[in-house]
Write a protein that binds this DNA or RNA. Sequence first.
DNA 1: TTGAAAGCGGTACCAA
DNA 2: TTGGTACCGCTTTCAA
Lengths: 354, 354
Amino acid sequence: MGIEWETRGYDMPARLKDIAQDLNLSVVTISKVLRDHPDISQQTRERVLKRMKELNYRPNLAARALVTGRSYIAGLVVPDLVHPFFGQVAKGLSNGLRKKGYSLVLSSSEDDPELERQEIEQLLARRVDVLIVASTQSSVETFHRLQEQKIPYVLIDRKFDGLAANFVGVDDAAVGELATAHLIDAGCRRIAHIGGPNVSTALGRVAGFRRALHARGIAVPPEYIEMREHGDDAGDASGYTAMQRLLTLNPPPDGVFCYNDPTAMGAMKAVLEAGLRVPEDVAIAGCGNVAYADFLRVPLTSVDQQSGAIGERTARMALALLEGGAPSRPKTVLLEPKLVVRASTLRPRLKPRK
Amino acid sequence: MGIEWETRGYDMPARLKDIAQDLNLSVVTISKVLRDHPDISQQTRERVLKRMKELNYRPNLAARALVTGRSYIAGLVVPDLVHPFFGQVAKGLSNGLRKKGYSLVLSSSEDDPELERQEIEQLLARRVDVLIVASTQSSVETFHRLQEQKIPYVLIDRKFDGLAANFVGVDDAAVGELATAHLIDAGCRRIAHIGGPNVSTALGRVAGFRRALHARGIAVPPEYIEMREHGDDAGDASGYTAMQRLLTLNPPPDGVFCYNDPTAMGAMKAVLEAGLRVPEDVAIAGCGNVAYADFLRVPLTSVDQQSGAIGERTARMALALLEGGAPSRPKTVLLEPKLVVRASTLRPRLKPRK
DNA sequence: TTGAAAGCGGTACCAA
DNA sequence: TTGGTACCGCTTTCAA
């Protein structure tokens, strides 16, 4: 045991220096063993590894990051961790990055653009190697700054028009089209939409909604479209009130496409409370395909956003940015949404005839 | 502009040294301004701050951590991020820590004890200041090691008998008692339990279940208790099959207390598919009070586990561990569970008489 | 195959 | 009020 070790206390983490002194070697040699450097004799290597085990040695990653300039940390900023979509993305991402030794630092922006900016600052101060953001910004300025500073980043879920950035998400217009076309096929003719806040996902979905109706020559009265200001959290409450309003119209809609599943759940509640039936009087389709969609009052038809796949693809893209040699052009990965049909849109005329 | 700056490239982050050279000051002076050290002249301070803004200076937290020995990072390990309970905990925790400048590094153990150990190692290598773990270990060894190394840690949700550790969670026996007593009050007399895996939460809940029945002199046939091996994910599937088995018994139960809400949802599905009614034939109570409990086929009575509060209290405890002076005795915070009654247990005899 | 010296970007201590 | 020097734990370069 080196003298150093004696005086450091058994609760302080061991350092390369401690091992070096114990073994009468230099710090450099130990460092090389640590990193599997070739030019170390087998015998020395074994002695060092043995001592490392004994001392329970763990390299100080912060120190390493300081000299190598790589932290092996990815930063993730999401609007709301409680939303199952982002939970799933975080899980897929975390799994993908772990394999390559990266850790994930998590920030929640609470759907607040200013807070999101602060969190990004904090992550940059930590010198994360890459940033992954489901942004709630309305301006693109933050990301221009990142570009200037050549900080690799990937946008997920929400993107910006006119910003050439790495992006992983679903094709939101396709999401809207898929759900809406399905409602039409189910026999609905007065189809309404309860939309989300002013971000790309909500805008894309309402655009797809319009496109599908237009393609089939079905008109959409403006009052059939309700864009809500809520973020991702209070979706059920806002879906509820939006649907109540839609039911006062004359004629009321016989089908509704909702921005997300919580919104759809709120809408469903309003319909049932009004004494109407789902799907016979009003068919309902949501987005997100939450895990429990099958267990709802009426099992909910929903467009799957591939949350797990988004996490994995984002991990792949982030790693490519880091390990890949030349900085490449920004890439966009658009996953195909999938419609999952359940009872909330299975109207009589579509049910199998007996 | 210092010569250094010219040659560094505009995309490299500015350092104290750059600012010092630009202003003909020493690095120490800049560092003091950065940390609001008192003995700096007003004029100097302003010059420095101005230059910091211009260069968009961000202190390198890794470098600071190296010298101060404090990383301002907390590590969180959970079994499954997708489970809404842990999402909520992570959110509360993140918010509580952010206020004091801490970041949160997130690890998912996927309910795998070995992976959990590896993740903890990784976090220790990052020199996190405190560790927060919802552990899936069966042995207590990992935590003894942490104690030896004097690494502050807080267990959440799941605890260990005989391990004196900081803990934040709910009183699981109370959870079980609360739900079971309610089922009895609702008029159930043949009450079954679908339990979870071999961790403290599941064991505590089944103990409370037994205690409540015993206190009212109601017997529990052993076959009325189904302990499932699943983790937190496939709860719905295992609740479904467990309930199917329970329904084959003679007599079948008229009330079921389930380990968690997904399990309860699966159980509910099995009951309804068997052509029975909830709650008239079988009343069902769950645990966790998931956000959408109100929107299920039959709105689900559930015991609220206070997930948000757990996150916040854990943040407080973690901060106390770090900022507090003397190392204190391990503390246990047991939050009171709350029963949220919904239709799944509102049996006729409890309904208001007309 | 091994190691001495320099330095990553900061902070602490003490002298000027 | 300001700054020189040492050092945090590790990697890099280059010489022995």
